[in-house]
Design a protein around this nucleic acid. Structure first.
Length: 583
RNA sequence: GGUUCGGUAGUUCAGUUUGGUUAGAAUACGUGCCUGUCACGCACGGGGUCGCGGGUUCGAGUCCCGUCCGGACCGCCA
């Protein structure tokens, strides 16, 4: 008795066919004379029916089954006398004439249903059971589809999928590396790749022209809902291209995925300079599903005797449409929100443009109604709108105002999961000053090429140099980023110089790449997408964990297999390692 | 490294503010009844080291200190 059908495909059309199905017992409903079993597999649920009058022996046997037992059943597809139109197979049932227990099950620690009663930790520990639930099953099927269609699109564009090594070399800058001790070379370590960056550049030098790889990457940093220590990138690189070529090719990929997987047609992605994104949204990954752009107010609010503003480097606000009726309590809650340590604003000023045309603010002492109306004009505010203003040091204030804008977007329901607003953020700065170390770091990575127009600035004002670097942002999520690389050794050396990387260090860490650049490296550039984030975005969720079959928890632990874990003294000895500190 | 929320039945939670009888609910589990259920229904039943350690008290799930574990976030993540 071989399986002839899955549990999702039998319908009224199969009536009176003899079939064999297999799966897990989802639920047993024992009505006395009748017993029903919902049999579940990856494809769906099919009802098995047992009748005490027809076959009492088999019916008794069915009643001994437990949840999650694995069985195989043979019987006849029959139209139900009372139908369940909520499921595709709901018009039929299988009148079972014979079944077999393939395996028993312990009672599962949580219910395996659409909405489980299990908590996060328990579900992680029994991930293989959680994955039986429809929501997670759908997520992994979605992931498969996205990976499949990505390969489809890139293959049609002549990209080759080429694997790069996982045991590689630790690199300076960037995230912490995961390292692997070498047994054969005592005292030496491999590093796991944070990305296949160097290798894909080498493949361009090898002449492969268009490369991609759906590949695991590793970063030893603290986790978030959207950050795992091992994650998957769609890593891509192209030769003989300029920025526009890369942007167009991969805008095409994302549009293709939306069309194929969600049947959504996206318009051309707007391109926004980094400086504009920071000025209007206070973020390099703006959520442009809604407006509420920043308006800078230094010119209208300074010099009226309000010390906080007079002493502020930067004053800016947002206008929340129709919120002038916010109560004192709501405004206090917003003030508390921006004063949370994670956001760190000192306070918040509001201006209410009331329905009756009057203007009231939390700083009426210092500003006349005319002053405040001038502010309202800057926002093109209408009667009924609420203006929220923060001030202080520019970067901090922008960040806080960005959080406030997103919070208001949430409160006003402007961040709908079913709406997708993609854009390119371009013209990132090449370098980023680090006050602690008193040196520049690469904003993207040290192989990113500078704007040709800004090359003179590299000597005079490095902080102002723009890079040929770009991010794709959808709904405030950075889904991908890349750059046109440096393909010239002199330029690469110059950038290392700006980054304070000595010749010796550069030679030690990237000697292979610097050497390769001298053997006819073509101009090239590329992009890497966070595949897990793309999956969660398509699935309408904030957390990438629900789209990874076996994710790690907040402390980078796999609680199911209980890893990381100590290794034996023999293993340590073989690796020439000694543990000097335990927690 | 920091902020914050949480840990009570197999599970999800209430109870902690204001210390006081035998720690409850739902669900899951077990037994019985039930011929059209599909979250079946009804009845009965078993099930607890209140995370752990210490302290205050006549008395601690409840208050204090410490610690462990988990979630979200900040720092960090080229």
């Amino acid at each position: 008795m071989h399986r002839t059908h899955n549990c999702g495909e039998l319908t009224i059309k199969n009536t009176s066919e003899k079939v064999t199905v297999a799966g897990w017992v989802q639920r047993i409903r024992n009505l006395g004379g009748l017993t029903f079993i919902d049999l579940r597999d990856r494809y769906g649920i099919t009802q098995l029916a047992f009748n005490m009058e027809v076959n009492p022996e088999l019916c008794e046997k069915a009643r001994e089954l437990g949840r999650e037992f694995v069985i195989k059943a043979h019987g006849t597809v029959t139209e139900r006398s009372s139908k369940n139109l909520n499921i595709p197979t709901g018009e039929i049932e299988i009148i079972v004439d014979n079944f077999q227990i393939l395996n028993k099950s312990l009672i599962p620690p949580f219910t395996i249903e659409e909405n489980t009663d299990g908590g996060d930790e328990l579900r992680m520990k029994y991930r293989y059971l959680d994955l039986r639930r429809p929501p997670l099953r759908k997520n992994l099927i979605l992931r498969h589809k996205l990976a499949f269609e990505t390969r489809n699109y890139l293959n049609n564009c002549d990209f080759l999928e080429i694997e790069t090594p996982v045991l590689i070399k630790s690199t300076p800058e960037g995230a912490r590396d995961y390292v692997v001790p070498s047994r054969i070379s005592p005292g030496e370590f491999y590093a796991l790749p944070q990305s296949p960056q160097s290798f894909k550049q080498l493949l361009m030098i090898s002449g492969f022209d268009k490369y991609f790889q759906i590949v695991k990457c590793f970063r030893d940093e603290d986790l978030r809902a959207d950050r795992q220590p091992e994650f998957t990138q769609i890593d891509c690189e192209m030769s003989f291209v300029e920025q526009d070529d890369v942007l167009n090719t991969f805008e095409g990929l994302i549009k293709y995925l939306f069309k194929e997987v969600k049947n959504i047609e996206l318009n051309e992605f707007p391109r926004m300079a980094y400086s504009e994104a920071m000025a209007k949204y206070g973020s390099d990954k703006p959520d442009i599903r809604f407006g509420m752009q920043f308006v800078e107010l230094n010119d209208v609010l300074k010099g009226k005797g309000f010390q906080v503003f007079d002493n502020a480097e930067y004053i800016a606000g947002i206008c929340a449409e129709g919120c002038a009726n916010y109560s004192r309590k709501q405004l206090d809650a917003l003030t508390d929100f921006v004063r949370k340590p994670q956001i760190g604003a000192k306070g918040m000023v509001y201006i209410k443009y009331n329905e009756d045309g009057s203007v009231r603010s939390s700083v009426d002492k210092f500003y006349t109604e005319d002053d405040l109306k001038k502010v309202a004009e800057k926002f093109n505010a209408k009667a009924g709108d609420l203006i929220l203003i923060l001030s202080g040091e520019t970067d901090h204030t922008r960040k806080a105002l960005c959080e406030l804008r997103l919070e208001m977007g949430n409160q006003l329901g402007l961040r709908n999961h079913d709406v997708y607003a993609p854009l390119w953020v371009v013209d990132f700065p090449l370098l980023e000053w680090n006050e602690e170390d008193k040196r520049f770091y690469a904003k993207h990575h040290p192989f990113t090429s500078p704007h040709i127009a800004d090359i003179d600035l590299m000597d005079t004002n490095p902080a102002e140099v723009r890079a040929n670097a770009y991010d794709m942002v959808i709904n405030g999520v950075e889904v991908g980023g890349g750059s046109i690389r440096i393909h010239d050794k002199q330029m690469q050396n110059k950038v290392f110089e700006l980054l304070g990387i000595s010749n010796e260090e550069a030679e030690e860490k990237f000697g292979f790449l610097l050497k390769a650049l001298q053997y006819g490296a073509p101009p090239h550039g590329g992009i890497a997408f966070g595949f897990d984030r793309i999956c969660s975005l398509f699935g309408g969720s904030e957390s990438i964990r629900d789209f990874i079959a076996f994710p790690k928890n907040n402390n980078a632990r796999d609680v199911m297999i209980d890893s990381p874990s100590p290794i034996s003294d023999e293993q340590l000895k073989e690796l020439n390692l000694k543990i000097i500190a335990n927690k």
